[in-house]
Amino acid sequence: MLSIKNLKAGIEEKEILKGINLEIKAGEVHAIMGPNGSGKSTLSSVLAGRAEYEVSGGEVILNGKNLLEMAPEERAREGVFMAFQYPVEIPGVSTTNFIKTAVNEVRKYRGQEALGAVEFLNLMKAKMKQVEIDQTLLSRSLNEGFSGGEKKRNEIFQMAMLEPKLAILDETDSGLDIDALRLVANGVNALRNKDNATIVITHYQRLLDYIVPDFVHVLYQGRIVKSGGKELAMELEAKGYDWIKEEVKEAETA
């Protein structure tokens, strides 16, 4: 589904990603872990299409299409969804109106008819139930005055409504207490199926107790330096990142 080859990117002339390679197939969950400053946020930003990041090499192909040539909205319409680490508060834009606009723009792109008021409401109700989000949140301005947990649940709700092929969860667990984390993870798990894939970017192993990955990759100094199964995450939890750093150092001097 997604193929990242030798991706190099940075911001303001500073190269942060120094050649990322990653293959993701439908139905898989990949976790990307790494210490602070390893390039995790840059990777998610580049995939979502943030303009301030510059790609200096490599390619990203989503279902045969060059993702890097697309505007952020085109990527979303092609099925990429990023759950933001810091969802933006937008006073005055109602959550419901926003989601309706988004859903219908995506449908238009896919050659589907826009949803009418009743159909949209029914879809919303079903998805609300699926990800356990309350109606009152949705009648408010987008993320305005939401708690950290509410914002993250709103992200997962948007994901449910847009039914992406590739979901990128950017540090979705940061700042969440265990109850909020469980709710968010339940939502993500409810949306998993054989046709979509998920990238979970996280600093902590804790989230992976709830969203169990098929693969774990360690990002360090702009490269994926180690890949493995879910046991790799356990090992990182137990031993920290220092042994990885040591390994990289040894490999460089060798």
Binding site: E73, A76, V88, P91, N97, F98, V106, Q158
Partner: peptide
């Protein structure tokens, strides 16, 4: 940042700008 957030959900840049301006004016 708000504009990027809306676009990342599939909303085209013009529609996204209009939504933000409407919200700004609504107060």
């Amino acid at each position: 940042e708000a504009l990027f957030y809306l676009r990342s959900r599939g909303i085209g840049v013009d529609v996204a700008k209009t939504l933000l301006m409407q919200a700004f004016a609504a107060e």
